[in-house]
Simulated assay, not measured.
Amino acid sequence: MIAVLVLVSLLALFGLCLPRLLRPMPARAAPGPPPDGAAHPESMVAELDPGDEEYLAGLADELWPDDEYLELERTSDGEEESGGSGMRL
C-alpha cells in the first residue's frame, strides 16, 4: 500500500514538472563585449582631479602600508621605476 502511495506521489510530481520540462529553452545572446556602459561604466583611462588622486593615494597608503609596488627599482639603463613583481612587459 505504501509503495502505491509513493508511486502515485512521484507520478503527480512528474506531472507537475512535465510542462516545464517540455518548454523550449530560451535563446542565449551571443557572447561578446557588453554594450557601452553596461558592465564597467567607469573609465580606465580618465584623468582624475588632483584632489581625488591625492585622496586615493592616501587611502591606498593607509590600506596597504607595505605595498611592494611603491618601492623604486633600478632598471638595466640605470633609471628608477616603480616597483612590482619584477616582470618586464
Score class of each variant (00 low, 15 high):
2 I>H: 05
4 V>Y: 03
4 V>H: 04
5 L>M: 11
6 V>E: 03
6 V>N: 01
7 L>T: 10
8 V>H: 01
9 S>F: 09
11 L>Q: 13
11 L>P: 06
12 A>T: 07
13 L>Q: 12
13 L>S: 15
13 L>C: 10
13 L>F: 11
17 C>K: 13
18 L>W: 13
19 P>D: 05
19 P>E: 10
19 P>Y: 11
20 R>D: 09
21 L>F: 13
21 L>H: 08
21 L>R: 13
21 L>P: 02
24 P>D: 13
24 P>N: 08
24 P>R: 13
25 M>S: 15
25 M>P: 02
25 M>C: 04
27 A>G: 05
28 R>S: 00
28 R>Y: 00
28 R>T: 01
29 A>R: 12
30 A>W: 00
31 P>T: 04
31 P>C: 03
32 G>L: 06
32 G>Q: 06
33 P>E: 15
36 D>N: 08
37 G>A: 03
38 A>H: 14
39 A>F: 02
39 A>L: 12
40 H>F: 14
40 H>Q: 13
42 E>D: 07
42 E>G: 01
42 E>V: 01
42 E>R: 12
42 E>N: 04
44 M>R: 14
44 M>H: 09
44 M>T: 08
44 M>C: 03
45 V>S: 15
45 V>Q: 12
46 A>V: 15
46 A>I: 08
46 A>S: 13
46 A>R: 15
49 D>G: 14
50 P>S: 07
50 P>A: 13
52 D>R: 08
53 E>R: 14
53 E>F: 13
54 E>G: 03
54 E>S: 14
54 E>L: 14
55 Y>V: 08
55 Y>M: 12
56 L>I: 12
56 L>K: 05
56 L>Q: 11
59 L>R: 09
60 A>Y: 01
61 D>I: 02
62 E>V: 05
63 L>G: 00
65 P>L: 11
65 P>E: 06
65 P>R: 02
65 P>I: 05
66 D>M: 06
67 D>I: 01
67 D>A: 11
67 D>T: 00
67 D>K: 01
68 E>L: 07
69 Y>C: 12
69 Y>A: 08
70 L>K: 03
70 L>H: 01
71 E>D: 12
71 E>L: 14
73 E>D: 06
73 E>S: 06
74 R>N: 10
74 R>K: 11
75 T>P: 00
75 T>Y: 10
76 S>W: 13
77 D>V: 04
79 E>V: 07
81 E>W: 04
82 S>D: 07
82 S>I: 04
83 G>F: 12
84 G>I: 10
85 S>I: 02
87 M>Y: 12
88 R>N: 09
